[in-house]
Amino acid sequence: MSTKSIIQASHVTKTFTEPVEFKVLNDISLDVERGEFVVLVGPSGSGKTTLMYTLSTLDTVYDGSITIDGVDIKSLTKNALADFRNSMIGFVFQFHYLLPDFTVLQNVMLPAQRKGGLTQDEMEDRAMKTLALLGVADQAMKRSSKLSGGQQQRVAIARALINDPKIIFGDEPTGNLDTKNTSMVLDILNDLKTEYHQTILMVTHDVEFAKRADRVISIRDGRIVDTEEHYSPIPAVRP
């Protein structure tokens, strides 16, 4: 096992049986290195989201094996897996999933409170710093539902970062944003990569996004077709 790789997936195959038997991931093997910014592209229905869920430990029903930071994911119990995600992984989805009745600060602190180990003040301090990093510190005391879409997505990124995770996973994090907000989020992720050497794995349709990545992985019909090559956004015909 190379110490450089943080994610190692080998021969991951996933089959849906409902409504018809269907191999959504077909023998996927890949390595992601520490500090690498990887982008997953591919036509709609090709299995990008599904692959992201399996690589990020949310989905554990597949054949093959996935190792993150040297830990075989399938060997973990449910609770251990939750704790592992809590400290190792941050998520940014297309939708922000902020708790609407909580303030921005409370939302960002949620993963830290689950993790524990810090005093309330330390947690707040850290949350404020993260919010500042994303340019939304002034919104900290507002209810999250009162923020604009772009602000909400930045708060969601702050929440993903609060526990200093080893990897950030994203599924079209700019999918719901206009061009201005999209480029802002892209800049932020870029900064994270260049300044903080954050490992990032993103699913996207965004060409801009793909351009900034260290590596682009193309998926088609559940297979990796050609790594490194830039994705052309012409949708393929669904199988």
Binding site: S87, Y97, R114
Partner: peptide, 16 residues
């Protein structure tokens, strides 16, 4: 449901 889903994604246990 979305709140429950994100809490679980961010590492809250089933027991929580």
């Amino acid at each position: 449901m979305p709140d429950i889903a994100i809490l679980k994604a961010m590492g809250y246990r089933d027991g929580d």
